[in-house]
Amino acid sequence: MHEPQWHLVTPLMEGGSLHALADNLARSGRNDSKDMRQLDIRYRSSFNHLLRSLGRLHAQGYCHDDVKPGNIFVDAPSDNQSSASWRLGDLGNVRQVEHPYHASSLWTHKNGQLPDCRANDALRAVKTYLQFLRQASAGLSETVVASSPFDRALVAAEEPWARLFRRARGVGNQLSVGEVLRRSEGEEGPATSAYSLAMLSQRPRVSSTRSFFLGWLETSDRAATRLLKISASEGRSRLLALTWLFGVPVGGC
């Protein structure tokens, strides 16, 4: 006798999020689970599958607006599962591409997002994949950071995934999921072995003074953490913008 209600039902992803998969891989006794190159070879197809899903969302006129490891879900908990079953979940922040929120100061200034939400989704997707590789290969938790071969490779752009990130970061607001996918499946794919001298010249500049006092390991660690940082959560940005006092600058969808 009650009014009908809508319920969103989704498949059970027993593997949890990418954080859980990375932790499982970090604890695994298998040597290839600690090698960032082997991990990239095993899971790049999953990342590319994720990009295609994100591209379909963009083609329908929407942005996810919250791409991060905690919102990517895996079909099985075993690290033997390297299928393409990574699902983009948590659609609570999905907005139309042209939604005025994306032009507000709360989005660009308080939260550090790219003005074009599609480019922002694409860059966050690349950062998410690299955070996964970093956590899985170095045994890092979500909060504990330690220097690792991954950090040094990222700073020096010595691996295909590092060059993919450099290109994505350099394009900025002109970035698209299609461009990331094209490079990820092509010249910056995991089978690529030749280094790009042009990209190596674009490595992040590290202060010589900091290098002297802190050492290369700590410097590369700090640089990697800074480069892969994903913007603050929307809740934190709203707190910084004092929305509880002044209100949200735009309405809902």
Rank of each mutant, 00 (worst) to 15 (best):
H109P: 00
L181N: 07
L227W: 14
G251S: 14
L88F: 13
E234V: 11
P115N: 03
R42I: 07
Q174T: 07
D35K: 02
R226N: 11
P4V: 01
S45G: 05
S220T: 14
Y43G: 02
S28P: 06
D40R: 01
N111M: 07
S141Y: 13
L217F: 09
N48S: 04
G247Y: 12
R44N: 13
R30A: 11
R222D: 12
L133W: 03
M199G: 00
K110S: 11
S211T: 13
S82M: 03
F73I: 01
L130Y: 03
T108E: 01
L130S: 09
L240A: 12
D23V: 02
F132T: 01
W86D: 00
S207M: 03
L214P: 00
P115G: 10
S104Y: 03
L227Y: 10
L197M: 04
R37Y: 05
S148C: 11
L21M: 08
S231G: 15
G170L: 11
G178I: 10
N173F: 07
N48K: 00
H2Y: 07
A153V: 06
R203F: 09
P11N: 03
R222S: 15
E159T: 10
E98V: 06
S147L: 06
E158N: 12
L57G: 02
G170S: 13
R205A: 06
L214H: 07
N93K: 12
S208A: 13
D116P: 02
L242F: 10
F150E: 01
Q202W: 07
E14L: 05
K229W: 13
E159K: 02
R238T: 08
A157C: 05
V171E: 14
V206E: 15
L245M: 09
G170W: 04
A198T: 13
R182Y: 06
R163A: 11
R203P: 01
V177H: 00
G170D: 14
P69G: 05
L12N: 08
L54E: 08
L88W: 06
A84Y: 02
A168N: 04
K34W: 12
L242S: 15
H64G: 02
K68A: 06
S85I: 00
M1D: 14
L51N: 01
F47W: 11
L175T: 04
F150D: 04
G247V: 03
R30P: 06
R166M: 03
P11Q: 05
Y101F: 13
V177P: 12
G70R: 00
A26H: 02
I230T: 01
H19C: 07
S45V: 05
G92D: 08
R238M: 15
L88N: 05
C253P: 15
L54D: 06
Y43T: 01
P77I: 00
H7V: 08
D75Q: 15
Q60H: 02
A191V: 05
P77A: 09
S207N: 10
A20M: 05
G55W: 00
